[in-house]
Structures are given as C-alpha cells and as structure tokens.
C-alpha cells in the first residue's frame, strides 16, 4: 500500500502541477478571460447552479411567508385603516363640496330676493301613498314656519307649500299633488293662468296649466312663474316649463302640461320662505 501510494502519489502531484501550469499559462496569454478549466467547470455546472439558485429563492420566499407573515398582516391592517380614513375624508369632501354649491346658489337667490327670510330644512320622509305627493321636513313652528308658507329649492324653484305644521316638523304638499293650485303667469307673454295638480299628469311627474285665457299664446318650453296672487307665494318664482299643449277642437290652447323646474324626486334639502315683502 505504501509502495503504491509512493509511486502513484508522485504521479498525482505531477499531474496537479501540470494542470496549474496550464492555467497560469492560459491566464498569462489571455488576461481577463477565464482559464480553460474554469470555463469547462462553469459550462458543466451551469444547469446545476441554476437549479440550486432557483431552489434557494423558493426557500427564501417560503421563509419570508412564514416568518414575515405577521408583519405583512399588520401592514395590511394599517393600509386598510388608511384606505377607510381616506374614503371617509373623500365623502366629507364631497358633502362639503355639494353644500358649497348649494350655498352659492342660495347666495344668488338671496341677492336677487333680498326681502326673503328663509329657513333651511331637511326632508325626513316621503309619503308612502301613490295618490299624493307630500313629504315631511325637520322643522316646524319653532323655526318660524307657518301654514301655507312657500317652499323652494336653492335656485328659487318652487316645490310646494306647507299644509300641516307641528312644533318640530311640517308636511309639505308639492305642486304636482292633485290638491295643489297656484296662481301662475306665462313669463314670455304675461298671461295669467292656474298651475294645478292633475292625477293623470301626476303619474308622469307633471302638473297642469289650466284656466288659460281665450287665445292664449303659449309655446312648448315657455317658462311659467308664480303670479303672487293670494299673498302666500311671492311673485316671480319659477314653477316649471311647458311640456305639451292640449288644444280643443277649435285649435286654441285648452290647457298645457308643465314639467316642474325643481327635480322633486331628488330633493334632500329645502328652503321655506317664512317672510317676504309682497309689494316687492
């Protein structure tokens, strides 16, 4: 054994030296390039190295999932809270923005009608009946509201009148209700008529312009305003616009349908005219 090792040992050492010399020579001749053995080793081991790298990366992911899970969950909860907070801020911003827009409209209205004293109220419920159009607001006599007071939007479009009053609530009957009747004027021609509720038109969200004078000159799209007769409703508030004209056999306008200027179905906030100058 000793002899074999002695003989073979020298041979092995010589081979090793030769390999090293070859590498040195290769490096000297081609500086910057890998020597022959390194190149062979890299080429042969590349698939194995790729496989091992991929395996290590997978293990790292699993490690991250297992040991960083709590960290990720906590971060997720913090982000959820942040999102919820931002959503709430956005909702507040939208509400404030809408209120700002309403107040701008109201400012225009109060500039135009400086004699109006207004009380703002929210709609708290609508009637469940299919045969009338009424709603209840959040203010009553405590806010200076009285029976028959006129109710308008921030743009000055008339909605209806107060028909029932309590200390803290009031019931408003809208102008499309069949019991509603308001003195009206055709803005363009100044002709007087009556804007009243009609059940057939009520189902389409319209009201009727009736008692037109003979030979009344009206056209589709004409603006109808309040005449101010009766003393409860100021003059000049926009009721709506003529939607359709219905003629009798002679061709003269018999009555017309009015589309209310106020979008009654979308109302949330209304303004009650508690006082105004009837002579204005």
């Amino acid at each position: 054994m000793k002899n074999i090792f002695k003989k073979r040992g020298i041979a092995i050492a010589v081979v090793a030296v030769i390999i090293a010399l070859v590498s040195v020579i290769t490096l000297t001749v081609n500086p910057g390039n890998s020597d022959f053995l390194s190149s062979v080793q890299n080429t042969a081991m590349r698939p194995v190295k790729n496989m091992m790298t991929s395996l290590i990366q997978s293990l790292e992911k699993i490690y991250g999932y297992m040991y960083k899970y709590d960290q990720i969950v906590e971060e997720n909860e913090q982000l959820k809270d942040k999102v919820a907070q931002l959503e709430e801020e956005y909702r507040d911003y939208t509400a404030i923005s809408n209120e700002n827009e309403e107040l701008k409209q109201l400012l225009g209205l109060t500039d135009k009608h400086s004699d109006f004293k207004l009380a703002q109220a929210s709609i708290i419920s609508w009637t469940a009946s299919n045969w009338s159009s009424t709603f209840t607001i959040s203010k009553g006599t405590n806010a200076g509201i009285e029976l028959n007071d006129c109710v308008i939007t921030e743009n000055g479009y008339i909605i209806g009148q107060v028909t029932k009053i309590g200390k803290t609530t009031a019931t408003i009957t809208t102008l499309i209700d069949t019991s509603s009747s308001i003195g009206a004027l055709v803005y363009a021609s100044g002709e007087a008529a009556v804007a009243e509720g009609d059940y057939k038109l009520f189902q389409d969200g319209l009201l009727k312009l009736a008692y037109l004078p003979d030979g009344a000159q009206i056209a589709t799209g004409d603006t109808i305003i309040t005449s101010g007769k009766g003393g409860y409703i100021p003059q000049g508030l926009v009721i709506g616009y003529i939607e359709d004209i219905y003629s009798s056999g002679s061709g003269l306008a018999d009555y017309a349908s009015i589309k209310p200027a106020a979008d009654i179905d979308s109302l949330t906030t209304v303004y009650i005219i508690t006082d105004f100058d009837a002579n204005n």
């Binding site: 059940y199 057939k200 189902q203």
Partner: peptide, 9 residues
C-alpha cells in the same frame, strides 16, 4: 280625476 288613470294606478 281621469278614470283610466285611476284604474292604472
């Protein structure tokens, strides 16, 4: 009120 409209309602 119009009878047909009432019936529809």
């Amino acid at each position: 009120a119009d009878i047909l409209a009432v019936l529809k309602g």
